[in-house]
Amino acid sequence: MSGAAHAAGHRRFALGPLSIRLRPRVAVFGAVLAAAILGTGLFALASGSLPLSLRDVLAALVRAPVAPEVMQVVAGIRLPRVLLAVLAGAMLGLSGAAMQALTRNGLADPGLIGVKEGASVAVLVLILAFPAVDVAARAPAGMAGGLAVALGVAALARDVSGVRFVLVGIGVSWLLSAALLVFLTTADVDDVETALVWLAGSLHGADWPLVPVAAFWGALGAGTLFLTARAADAALLGDGAARGLGVRLKLLGALTLAAPVLMTAAAVSCVGSLGFVGLMAPHMARLLLGGGQAAVLGASALFGGFMVLAADTAGRLLFAPLQIPAGIVMCVVGVPFFLFILWRRRDRL
C-alpha cells in the first residue's frame, strides 16, 4: 500500500505520534491559492475611494494606533466584505464539488437545481415581509427554502445520479426565476430596488453580524463533506463496490445532499445569488490537481473563495464610483465557461 501511495505521488509526514499522507503538489498548490487569496484580500482592503498603504492596513488589522477613519474603513467596512466574499465563495465551491460527486455529473451545481432560487425566494419574503428581523434569521429561512426545492427536485427526478436530476432542477429553477420576475414587475419600487441589489449577488451590504453566520454553516458543511470524502471516493466506483467496502450509500447520499444545499442557502442568505462558482471551481480543481474527493474539495473551496473575492474587488474598483455586483461579474465569466463545458461533454449528453 505504501509503495502504491508513493507511486501515486503521496508522501508521509510525521510529527511525533501524528502522521499524515499528502501529495506535495496538492500542498504546494493549496499554499499558492491561499497566498493569492491573502494578497487579493490585502489589495481589496487597501483599495477604494480612500486609498490606503499596506502599512495602514496591517496596523488597522492588528489594532495598532491608526487614524480613526482608517480603522473604520478597514475594520468596519472592507474587512467584513472581504471575509464574506471568501466564505461565500468557499461554500459555493465546496457545494459544487459535492453535488458533482453525488450526481456523477460534471454539470451539476446547486444553482442549476433550483437551490439558490429557492433560498432567494425564502430570504426575499423574509426581508420584505419582516424587515425588522435580525440578519441572522436569513440563513435558516434560506436553508428551509433551498432544502425544500432540493427535496422536491429529487422527488420529481426519482434519482440524484443522472442527467434527469439536473434537467428537472433546471426546470424548477426557471419556474422559481419566473416567480421572482413576476414579483419584480408587480411590487413596490422600493421593494424592487432592494430585491434587485440583493439578487445580483452584491456584497455592498456586508456587515459583521453576517460573518459568524457564514463561518458557522461553512464550517459545519465543510466538516461533513471532508469526513465523508473517503466514502464518496468509494461511491464513485459504483454502488456494488461501495457496498462491498462498507459504505452506507443512503446515509452518504443524505449527507452529501444536505451539506451543499445548506451551505449554498447560507451563502445566498448572506450575499445574495452568486452564479457559476459551484460549477467552475470543481472543474478548475480537477483540471489542475486531480486526486481524490478530499483534494478536490479543498481546492474547490480555495478556488471559490478566490473567484468571489476577485470578482467583488474587480466590480468595486474597475468602474468606480459605480459598483458592479460580484454576481454580475461571475456571470460574465461563468457563461462562456459553462458553454465550454457543455461543448466538451456534447457526446455524453
Rank of each mutant, 00 (worst) to 15 (best):
3 G>T: 05
5 A>R: 15
11 R>M: 10
16 G>V: 03
16 G>P: 04
19 S>M: 05
20 I>C: 10
24 P>Y: 02
29 F>V: 06
33 L>Q: 12
41 G>T: 09
50 L>T: 13
72 Q>Y: 06
76 G>D: 07
79 L>N: 08
82 V>A: 15
84 L>H: 01
86 V>L: 09
91 M>N: 13
96 G>S: 06
102 L>V: 04
105 N>H: 06
109 D>N: 13
118 G>T: 04
142 G>M: 11
149 V>L: 13
154 A>K: 02
155 A>Y: 05
158 R>G: 06
169 G>T: 04
174 W>T: 09
176 L>I: 11
178 A>D: 11
185 T>Q: 14
187 A>L: 07
187 A>Y: 04
189 V>M: 09
191 D>M: 12
193 E>L: 15
193 E>Y: 10
198 W>E: 02
203 L>C: 07
204 H>L: 14
212 P>L: 11
214 A>G: 05
221 G>H: 09
221 G>R: 06
234 A>K: 09
243 R>H: 08
246 G>R: 03
248 R>F: 00
254 A>S: 11
274 L>I: 15
278 G>Q: 08
279 L>R: 03
284 M>N: 01
284 M>W: 13
286 R>G: 00
286 R>H: 01
294 A>R: 08
297 L>W: 01
301 A>L: 14
309 L>C: 10
315 G>L: 06
317 L>I: 13
323 Q>Y: 01
326 A>Y: 00
327 G>Y: 00
332 V>R: 03
342 L>W: 08
342 L>I: 09
347 D>Q: 14
348 R>L: 15
